[in-house]
Simulated scan of single mutants.
Amino acid sequence: MNKENINYAGLTGSFDIVVGSVSAYSSVFLMAQGLDEFAIGILTSTANLLASFLQPWLGDKVDKSIKLNLWHVNILIIIPSLLLLVGILLASRWVALVAFFYTLVLTLQVTLSPFLSAIGVYIMNNGVKINYGVSRGVQSSAFAMTSTTLGILVSRMGTQTIIYFAIFGYLLYLVMLFILYQNVLKSLFADHSQAVKLNPVDVALKPTQTPFFNKYPHFKYIIFGSFCFFIGHNFINLFMIQIIENVGGTTENMGIAVGLSAIAEVPMMLLFTRINQRVSINKLMMTAAIFFSIKTIFTLLASSVVGIYMAQVMQPFAFGIYIVGSVYYTNSQMDATDKVKGQSLVTTAHTLGGVVGSSVGGWLINHFSVEYGLIFCIIMSLLGVAAYYIGLFNHR
C-alpha cells in the first residue's frame, strides 16, 4: 500500500474515533446531563439541519476562494470543535450550556465529513490513487474499537470519558492531516487548481433543463425508500442505549453492540465490487432494503442483549451493502451531467431521514416506549421496501 493510502486511511480512521464517541454516545452523554429522549432527538436533528446549511456555505467559499483550500477548512472546523469539547468539560455544571456546546460539536462533526471525503476525491482527481474500500474499512474498524472501548470505560469512569476520546480523536486527526498535507496535499495545491462541490441540498433542488424526475421517473421511489431506511438507521444508532437498557443491558453492552455492527460491515465494503460482478446492483440494493427492515424487526423482537447482538450483525447486508451500492446504483442510472444531482438527492434523503428518526423517534420513546419507536421505524422501512421494489423492478 502506498503512503498516500496509508496517510488517508489514518485520517479517516482518526475521524471515526470522533464519530464513535461524540455521535455514537450522544444519547448516553446527554441523558447523563438530565435531558430526555425528545430533547436529545431535537438537538441531534438541529445539528443535522445546521450542518446541511454550513456544508454548502463553506464549500462555496472554497470553490470561489484563491487562498482558502481543503487544508484550511479542515483546520477551521477542528479547532472550534476542540475548544467546544474543552468548554463542555469546563461547563459541566451548566446543563443548558453543555447541551448547546454539544449540539455545535455534532454540527461541526457532520459538517467535516464531506470535506474529509473531498480530500480523497481531490487527491484521486489529481492523479494519485486512493483505495476507498481500504479507507472505509479503516473507518469502520476505528469506529468499532472506539465504541467497544468506550462502552467499558463509560460504565466504569463516567460519561466525561466520551469527551476525552473525542479530543484525542481530533488531535490525532490534526496530526494525520499535517502528515498528509506535507506528503501529498502541499504539492497538489501548488500545482493544480481546486474545485469542491459540497452543496447537496442546493444541487438537489437546482432545476435542470429536462425535469429530473421526468428523465428518471423511477428515481423518486429510490429517494423515498432511502429516506425511509435512514429513519430507522438513525433511530437505532442514536437510541441504542435505550434499546439495550430495555432488554436489561448496560452501557458496556451498548458499546459491544455498536462495535459489532461496525466491524461486521467491513468485509462487505471491501468485497462489494467483487460481489457486484456476480450479482446485479438492482438485486443488491433490494437485498439491502429488505435487511434494513429485518434488522429493525429483529431489534423489536429481541428479549435479551444477545438478541440485540444478533440484530446488529445483520448490518453488512443492510447498511454495508447500501452505503456502497447507492453510489454505484446512482452512477449507473444517470448521464454524466446528472450524477452529482442524483448523489445529492440521496444525501438529502439521508439527512431528512435522520432528522425524522431523531425527532419523531425521541418523542415516541419519551411519551410511549422504545417499542413504539421501533414499530414506527418498521412501518417506514416496509414502505421503503415497497418503494424500492417499484423503483428497481416495476417502474414504467
Rank of each mutant, 00 (worst) to 15 (best):
Y170F: 15
L171T: 14
L172W: 03
Y173C: 10
L174R: 04
V175H: 07
L177C: 08
L177T: 09
F178V: 13
F178C: 13
Y181H: 11
S187W: 09
H192L: 09
S193T: 12
Q194S: 09
Q194E: 12
A195N: 15
N199T: 08
N199I: 05
V201D: 07
V201R: 01
D202A: 15
A204H: 01
T208N: 06
T208R: 07
T208G: 06
T210R: 10
P211N: 03
N214T: 13
K215G: 00
H218M: 12
I222P: 01
I222C: 03
I222Y: 00
I223P: 04
I223Q: 08
I223H: 04
I223V: 15
G225H: 02
G225V: 01
F227P: 09
C228Y: 07
C228S: 07
I231F: 03
F235G: 00
I236W: 07
I236L: 13
I236T: 14
I236S: 14
N237D: 14
L238V: 10
M240P: 06
I241L: 11
I243G: 00
E245C: 09
E245W: 10
V247F: 05
G248W: 01
T250Y: 02
T250S: 15
T250A: 06
E252Q: 11
E252M: 12
E252S: 15
N253K: 07
N253R: 07
M254F: 04
G255M: 00
G255E: 03
I256A: 10
